[in-house]
Amino acid sequence: MNEETFLEAAETGDMETILGLLNDGIDVNTKDTHDRTALLKAAKHGHKEIVELLIEHGAEVDHRDNRGTSALYWASTNGYYDIVQFLIEHSSDVDVHDNRGWSAKDQAITHHHDNVVELLNSAGAH
């Protein structure tokens, strides 16, 4: 129950619930049935403060779900420049590819997030 609540809070941006469950000792790398973590969900939905908090609490920056996607992949896909930058600063793999062979940079290009593409390029993405 707490795991589902934690993951849903990361997706919806519910900082109070995230803080409470972290303080209660929940595993920051808890996964859903698709291997998605709170970090991946927060990054996908643009919740930068939650991304920062989760990483502070030891979230695995490059965890990949069952489709091979990561927090950086989703932040790039959705054009969340500040989250992409933060993840890069915390040693996220800029060349991560999903199971279809698409990279975070490919996703940023496809969705016309030119500033994210430039950021990934400057971080050495191929």
Rank of each mutant, 00 (worst) to 15 (best):
A59P: 04
N23K: 13
H97N: 12
A108M: 10
L53C: 12
A9W: 00
D27R: 05
D27K: 10
A123L: 03
D14W: 04
A71R: 06
Y80P: 01
H97M: 12
Y81I: 05
E4V: 14
S70E: 02
G58F: 11
H63L: 08
T110P: 07
H126M: 06
N29L: 08
D27G: 01
L19T: 15
T30K: 02
V51M: 09
T5Q: 12
N115W: 06
D35G: 00
A10D: 04
E118D: 11
A9N: 04
L21Y: 00
T33E: 15
A59Y: 09
R36K: 15
V61H: 07
N115V: 10
D93S: 11
A59L: 05
K105T: 14
E49M: 13
A9T: 04
M1G: 11
F6G: 06
E56F: 13
V28I: 05
R64D: 07
N78W: 05
A125K: 06
G20P: 01
G68I: 03
H57D: 15
N115R: 13
G25S: 11
T69M: 06
A71E: 05
G46H: 11
G13E: 03
V96W: 07
T17S: 08
M1V: 15
D32K: 04
E89P: 04
N23W: 03
T69W: 06
N29G: 06
T33Q: 15
L72T: 00
N2E: 13
I26F: 02
A38C: 15
V117R: 08
D27A: 00
Q85V: 09
V116E: 01
T110G: 02
A125M: 08
S103N: 09
N99H: 12
R100S: 14
T17E: 08
N78E: 04
A9C: 02
V117H: 10
I88L: 13
E3L: 07
A123D: 02
E49P: 05
A75N: 03
A9S: 13
L54E: 10
